[in-house]
């Protein structure tokens, strides 16, 4: 199933790119389409933050991941680059787990 998802994403994402370079602009250049396309990444990425940090199967739990997210916020406020933000989040969560004994 993972391979199917990899291949569907590959074909689909490529065709979405090619479509932009190929279709006449008037087909997609409408204000509502542009607004939705601009807001989709905001909604999907925000939802992914929530689910990744608080979700555990079908439950919501508060654990070391939330500390990691807090550390990521601090790193972003300090204008840290992407990789530093990600490593900071991981290190903060790992530190909490280490101190809490697992």
């Amino acid at each position: 199933m993972i391979w199917a998802a990899v291949l569907v994403s590959s074909a689909g994402c490529y065709l979405l790119k090619l479509a932009g370079l190929s279709v006449p602009p008037r087909v997609l250049e409408r204000p509502a389409v542009e607004r939705v396309a601009g807001l989709l990444p905001v909604a999907l990425l925000s939802a992914l933050v929530g689910v990744q940090v608080l979700g555990a199967g079908q439950h919501l739990v508060l654990d070391a991941r939330l500390v990691g997210l807090g550390a990521a916020v601090v790193a972003l406020l300090l204008r840290a680059p992407f990789l530093v933000v990600v490593v900071t989040a991981a290190a903060a969560a790992a530190a909490v787990r280490l101190l809490a004994g697992g």
């Binding site: 990744q52 990521a72 933000v85 903060a92 530190a95």
Partner: peptide
Amino acid sequence: TYGLDAAVGGAFLALV
């Protein structure tokens, strides 16, 4: 152990 599960949330936050 390395907080990689928390790194995912951090990555999405940095992207958004």
